[in-house]
Structures are given as structure tokens and as C-alpha cells.
Amino acid sequence: MSEILNRLRDLFSPTRITTYLVDELLPDLVVAVVTLGTAWLVWKLLERGARAVLRRSELDETAQSFIQTVIRYLILTIGVVTALAQLGVDTASLLTSLGVVGLTIGFAARDTLSNVISGLFIFWDRPFVISDLVEIDGKYGRVQNITMRSTRVVTVDGRMLAIPNSQIVNSVVASYTNFPNLRLDVPFTISVTEDIARAREIAIGVIADDARFLADPAPLVAVTELNDYNVTMELRVWLDDERSHVTMRFELRERLFEALRSAEVEMPFETFALVSEAA
């Protein structure tokens, strides 16, 4: 028993521990830290160079972000593996073990893995890009960033929505900015006794000589419903700047109402439905 205690004292003696730390571990630790620092510095230098090169390229912001993300993780992974090898870690066995562990974790975190794979599909298929105006499952906003796990959408009221990528690839995505122009449909009603041609002329006059609306395709006023108490019509116009569609819809609806009211066009609502609900 005393022999075991003597060996333990010798093994964990302050002198022996200090010698090990100073002569063996500290140099490797310093080199490992320097390796990590070098990897980080290399990434920062490459980041600046890559950003400058990508800005001069014809790639859009989404592709640039994806390339920079891949380069960052690649360089940092190489730095971490090199630093661990400097500390005496068998990186080959470690990577093999991580592969087995990663497979086990992958089964346990299927949703996260699904989001990562879906993120790759989004980068590849490109249903939208950064700064696009989109609607996903009824959620409308501007795409601020696309990560490997989620897509960040900023709504018109300033909220940031992190939508899982797996949800996006399995949903209908409506983009308001993927094509050069966007059509606005603004409905309004007139009395059944009103002149439809006159109402159409007033509606068209609202957007006449306004450069924000296109002449080709030409604006259209269509009759969409014939009700008991009113006629539902719709002003359909194409915008020159599709990104302004939210504010332009509000503005056009107000201008149309004021034009019809100024022309003393009767705009009744369906009173029968209200009476039925009250009864």
C-alpha cells in the first residue's frame, strides 16, 4: 500500500506536473493556439479578398454569402484539426469516431439535418435570393439572410422570422421580385344602377400619366362579380417597380376611392348580408 502511495505522490508531485506543463504541454499548446490564430487570420484575409472578388463578379448576394460560408468553415475546420494534431490527438481516429457519433446524432436530430440539407437545396434551386420580397405560408417579408438551418425574413412591421429550411422546401413560395414587373389588383364596388363604362373611365384616369404604372401591359378594369346590390369591379395595373407594391396598393386604393366619390359614383355595400347576420 505504501508503495502505491509513493508512486501516486511521485506521479502527481508538483515538480513533475510543473515539468510536464512547462516542458511538454505548454509548447504544444502555444503552437496549437498559434495555429488557430493563423487559421482565423487567413480566413479574415481571404474574406476581404473573396468579398472584393465576388463583388466584381456577376454572382448575386445569395451566391456570394454561400461561397463565403463554405470557405470560412473549411478554413476553420482545417485549423482545428491541425491544432488538435499538434496537441498529440490522433485526428484520423478522431474523425472516424466523429463520423460514427455524427451518424448517431444525425438520427437523433433528423429535423436539424433536414434543415441543413434543405438549405443546400435552396442555394441550389434558388426559388428566391437575399433581398427578395416573398410570401411563405402566408408570411410576407424581405429575405434578409439564408443560413444552412433557416431563412431569415423581415416582415413589413419589423419582425424577423426564422423559417426552417425544411418547411420552405415543402411549401408554396410566392416571390414578388423574381420577375421584372408585378400586377396590382384593386377591387371596388359600384351601384347596379351606375354606368359601368363611366366607372371604368374614372378608374383608368386615376393612373393616367403616372410613370410608376406601365402602359404595356395596358391597365384593365374588369367586372368580377354581379351582386344583388352592387357590381364588383377590379382595377388591374402593372407596376414599374415591383418592390413598391405594398405602398402603391394603399395609395391606389385611396386615390380610386377619392376619384369615384368626387365623380359622385354610388358605391353601396351588401346590406342584405348584414341584415341576415343581425337577424
Rank of each mutant, 00 (worst) to 15 (best):
L87H: 05
D132M: 09
G102A: 02
Q144F: 11
G99R: 10
P14M: 13
A215D: 09
V231K: 01
F123G: 08
V221I: 10
T15G: 13
W43Q: 05
E194F: 02
G138C: 11
M160W: 01
T147E: 10
V156K: 07
D209N: 14
G106L: 05
A162W: 10
V231F: 02
V169R: 09
S175K: 10
L220G: 06
G79W: 00
A259P: 08
V81D: 04
S166P: 01
S262V: 00
T82K: 06
A215P: 06
P187Y: 01
F121R: 08
A203E: 01
Y140C: 13
V153R: 06
L8K: 08
L87P: 06
N227I: 01
G205E: 05
V101I: 13
F269R: 06
T19V: 14
D132Y: 05
S65K: 06
T247M: 03
W43S: 03
D60V: 06
M148D: 11
V169M: 08
A199E: 02
T104S: 05
D90L: 01
D185G: 02
D185Y: 00
S150K: 11
L120I: 15
Y73W: 13
F272E: 04
Q86C: 13
R149I: 15
N181P: 05
D241P: 07
V169T: 12
E201Q: 06
E135M: 04
D23R: 11
R243H: 10
I71E: 06
A50M: 08
R183M: 00
Q86N: 13
T189A: 06
P180C: 03
G37T: 05
V34P: 06
L21I: 13
L8S: 01
G49A: 15
L5K: 14
N178M: 11
L133A: 05
E254I: 14
R48Y: 00
M248F: 03
T96Y: 07
T155S: 14
T62E: 08
A50Q: 05
V169W: 03
A39E: 12
L41F: 14
M233C: 00
D111E: 12
L5Y: 14
L25C: 12
